[in-house]
């Protein structure tokens, strides 16, 4: 039985991260942006777990749990804001929230 190289895990994490990043930049729908953010957070989780596994330490998983809590809180707040936005603007387009231009 062969073993997985750490570099491959990291490359997988990078690819997932970049896909999420594309989603954040490209999508106008705020809901999709949130989902893309989940993908990015998940990618970071992959990197942590991989590193923890490579060094045989549990810290990686601890970090993953912390990321999990962060993601949960973020999604709760983000969705609440989206509900608010939908009520006010009847739309989820992030570009209409461009009032803080310089």
């Amino acid at each position: 039985m062969t073993t997985i190289a750490l570099t491959h895990v990291l490359i997988l994490a990078s690819i997932l991260f970049v896909i999420g990043f594309v989603g954040v930049i490209v999508r106008k729908n705020t809901l999709f942006m949130l989902m893309s953010l989940e993908v990015m957070l998940n990618a970071v989780g992959v990197a942590f777990i991989g590193a923890g596994s490579a060094w045989q330490q549990a810290d990686g998983q601890v970090m993953f749990i912390l990321i999990l809590t962060l993601a949960a809180a973020e999604v709760a707040v983000g969705l609440a804001l989206l509900i608010n936005m939908q009520r006010r603007y009847r739309s989820l387009d992030i570009d209409i929230l461009a009032r803080m231009r310089g």
Binding site: T3, L10, I11, S14, F17, V18, F21, I25, A54, Q56
Partner: peptide, 27 residues
């Protein structure tokens, strides 16, 4: 932009000489 970022990341990972492999031991 993303491809660029990915390239940079991959180059960074491959340049950092990580020899570790994942030990299939359950934590």
């Amino acid at each position: 932009l993303s491809v660029l970022l990915l390239l940079v990341l991959i180059i960074a990972i491959s340049n950092s000489e990580i020899q570790q492999v994942l030990i299939p031991k359950v934590i």
